[in-house]
Design a protein around this nucleic acid. Sequence first.
DNA 1: GTTCCGCATGAATCGATAG
DNA 2: ACTATCGATTCATGCGGAA
Lengths: 271, 271
Amino acid sequence: MFRPKVNNIILGDCEQRLKSFPSNFFDLIITSPPYADARKTTYGGIEADKYNEWFLKKSNEFFRVLKNTGTFILNIKEKVVDGERHTYVLELIMKLREQGWLWTEEFIWHKTTSAPGKWPNRFRDAWERCLQFNKNKEFAMYQEAVMVPAKESTKKRMLNLNENDLARQASKTQSTFGRKMSAWQNRELVYPDNVLYMAAECKNKGHSACFPSKLPEFFIKLFTQENDIVLDPFVGSGTTTQMARKLNRKYIGIELNEEYHKLAIERTNQD
Amino acid sequence: MFRPKVNNIILGDCEQRLKSFPSNFFDLIITSPPYADARKTTYGGIEADKYNEWFLKKSNEFFRVLKNTGTFILNIKEKVVDGERHTYVLELIMKLREQGWLWTEEFIWHKTTSAPGKWPNRFRDAWERCLQFNKNKEFAMYQEAVMVPAKESTKKRMLNLNENDLARQASKTQSTFGRKMSAWQNRELVYPDNVLYMAAECKNKGHSACFPSKLPEFFIKLFTQENDIVLDPFVGSGTTTQMARKLNRKYIGIELNEEYHKLAIERTNQD
DNA sequence: GTTCCGCATGAATCGATAG
DNA sequence: ACTATCGATTCATGCGGAA
């Protein structure tokens, strides 16, 4: 059978590019697609009312190329239109079910760094949906890979480790942080719950969307093993593929925009 | 005009009992209705597929008795049916909009101490929806009443405004400048966001639903003033009415079950 | 090497103003 | 009346430079 090249960032529209991939190929599809009406200059700005029509053609291909035991994670949040939360995401969930997807779970990503603002009739929006879809009730899940320390306060800290912390950890030596790390590791580990608490680090200046690396890291660990194949069909600046490579997974990223495509290749292959 | 007695816990079905109330009467309706299929012995167990039909008849009365500037808070979470999250809550949101409600916002209640458990293919469910509906785009909201302490890092910065802050302030008109600056420097309190993080205390043994008093407290403070009238049409063990009384709001609670009704009266009137 | 401090800015939203 | 653009508001955090 023809096997496409993996560990590759492809330029183009995911719906078209995926046609050259065999069915039942990927173990995990994880993506944060352009939100409705959000990125006018970069994606042509899909209107909220036309969003589902646009998205369902893509997701139909996702369904085909995902393994039967695979998982599809969709990070999305509806915006406020005319004072109300728009319902297109709710409708999309139901349309995806009609397309054959099982809506297994909805994780909440609690963004600690949400956009500022003060309005007379609403507070700051601090969360996004991470919708989990599957093709079958039986799917691969490796819960042990994402266990966290038992204490709530510590759990937050672990989920929220920034690269600065990681760098210091890597430098080892007798830094305070290193000592703390070993202390945490001695504590009892428990399974997390379906609320993910992490900062929206936005270092990637080239890309307007905040997609913290902790998010793909969590789901890649949870739903794949080493050498499994991960797809991000809207790979943007390459956060998903970068984490996949770091975690020794195979990856395919697809990106329509030439500049992001270039950036994604750079970021994925650095160190 | 006939004015029904307030500060009262009524025995009966809310749809029927509300008929004796005038239109545009309540400032806030907040409730945690029996979830689909969850409380078979106490409510006859509304099936997930028939839930909306059942609920929409009630919410139609809610719409009538709520003031035009009032708010309806619905605490609800869909259950897992056959391995999938059921979509009846999503459908309910859209049906409520057809009924005339505006879906203003969705708050997330992050339950810190939800029941432990281990399943092969999902984690602990640690959140519920608190859906905000309104009759008009203009509604009463008292944001200052629910402000929370600022993070330490932010407090420090406020004590020591830097040039960047000054520059951003300088772009404003003169009149705003002075006023706002002093407000900032004295600020230890900031506005919360739309993720509520509170423990699910379940002291009320008599009632099966966990509805921590912090939840009605937050929304009562946010959407009403003293002497405003609060309704909980599924008052259960009386958490909402207890908090309403404590906060010097008027209240009506309605409960179908005789034992809960008795319990709600007791708990509401205890100091 | 560590701690502290200053700085920039973000998947936002609203209301006013302009065309 | 309806749409497009613009200014104002506001908090958390990572980063870099200094002590």
